[in-house]
Design a protein around this nucleic acid. Structure first.
Lengths: 236, 236
DNA sequence: AACTGAAATCTGGTATATCAGATCTCACAG
DNA sequence: CTGTGAGATCTGATATACCAGATTTCAGTT
């Protein structure tokens, strides 16, 4: 018996609270602004005012400033010292975010193919099987969840935490748009085929094919999102 | 004649000041901390204290906080709300930064091969020619400068600003280490060959070869840096 | 000796005041 | 009409005070 579990007041029935559930104002501001920018609620090159934002969101400027620093590092805004903060997002930016994600995901797929363990392979296959069923009969939300699980499993298999985190930041669309896409029968069919091909390549350890299949999948599906999000307004 | 240049008090002899030259305390703190982290002056998982940092750097906590938010978004520190700030950097992180850079640079090389203009091709070739000379007779600093120019030209040719910015953030070594590497005759020879191959592929429009050559170059040279920066202390 | 919990303390989070560069306004000189 | 520049004003940058979780300390209890 392990001493620690004996001595410590440990109780498996109650999970430890994840500190991440405790959010901060800064985080809330960050999410809100990020979402607003990505959904085009700011114009390209529009200036935003820290004090004004603070007032609108009912907070002081401190969390606003911190959130803006994060957005700046993400490349969504640009701060001109002592002059102003500009929104930096348009369809071109979104396109490059897709390319970034494609590049990173394909690198991760490559490594996953190289590092995949037996049990992880089985789990990945299980996800694909569930996807097949959900594609036929499931709702959009089921597919979205499976989609996330699929990519997460690959991230975990690759053993790359830094890369996985980077990829998360390249998402420029929200749940509502995903729901639209995952409701389209044609898109569902294509996505399933692509996912199956990716999984097969990774499970078979074919790094090269994994890489390409993943890249092509991310680029193609990304372009589908682009068309919907930016419709007819492709800015300069 | 263009009206604007006639009416405006324009004087080509004097360049407009780039606002970016005006730096802020926050920026200075960011650079300082980033450099300190990347050069291993903090231990893995070491906790840093905002007030303490402020005192050490002789500033208030505000610019410290903002710089930490940037570093957090870059993945170099992690903030546990109301508990502390942890350094998140070790050799594994550095390895993944190399992989990220390789993935992004190879994507950019792919696009550069597709989008390269005639004049840009000539300029790229010029850089390669200068590199050949510098490899034989030049100093390390010349090679470093040419190296940067080479990659910059490819970034510009790719027309990807967002990706180019992302790549900049994946650098984990400083000038002094680059100087060591670019002084080694063997390394110089290898790098020249790789650069030449990349340039040739891009100029010939061979997207596939460009991509691979770039990726392999970044990974290989990155590993050289890894060996030097982390020597014998490869942490968990 | 082991446990409990209140209080001290540490740390980041937030609000606010103030500073200073950048920009704008507008009277006034040429 | 045009150009100038002092002053008002806007905006981000910085400093500072205070708030509130999280952690530690330690006396008191069993």
């Amino acid at each position: 018996m392990r001493e620690e579990t004996e001595l410590a007041p440990h109780d498996d029935r109650i999970e430890k609270l994840d500190p991440r559930f405790l959010t901060t104002l800064r985080d809330h501001v960050h999410r809100t602004l990020r979402s607003a920018i990505l959904s085009g609620r700011f114009g390209v090159n529009e200036r935003v005012n820290e004090r004004q934002l603070a007032e609108q969101l009912g907070v002081s400027t401190t969390p606003i400033k911190e959130a803006l620093r994060q957005l700046e590092t993400e490349g969504l805004v640009e701060t001109l010292p002592r002059r102003g903060v500009l929104i930096r997002f348009n369809s071109g930016w979104a396109e490059e975010m897709i390319l970034a994600r494609a590049a990173l995901e394909s690198m991760i797929a490559h490594l996953a193919a190289k590092r995949l363990t037996k049990p992880a392979a089985a789990e990945l296959q299980t996800t694909i099987n569930l996807m097949m069923e959900a594609t036929k009969a499931g709702g959009a939300d089921d597919l979205i969840a499976l989609n996330e699980k699929f990519h997460d499993q690959i991230h975990i298999a690759s053993q790359c935490q830094y890369l996985a985190r980077m990829i998360e930041r390249q998402q420029f669309y929200d749940a509502s748009i995903r729901r639209v896409i995952h409701s389209d029968p044609a898109e569902r069919e294509i996505a399933l085929n692509e996912h199956s091909a990716i999984a097969a390549a990774i499970i078979s350890g074919d790094t090269d094919t994994s890489e390409r299949a993943m890249r092509d999948h991310v680029v193609r599906s990304g372009e589908t999102y682009l068309k919907i999000v930016f419709k007819n307004k492709r800015e300069v």
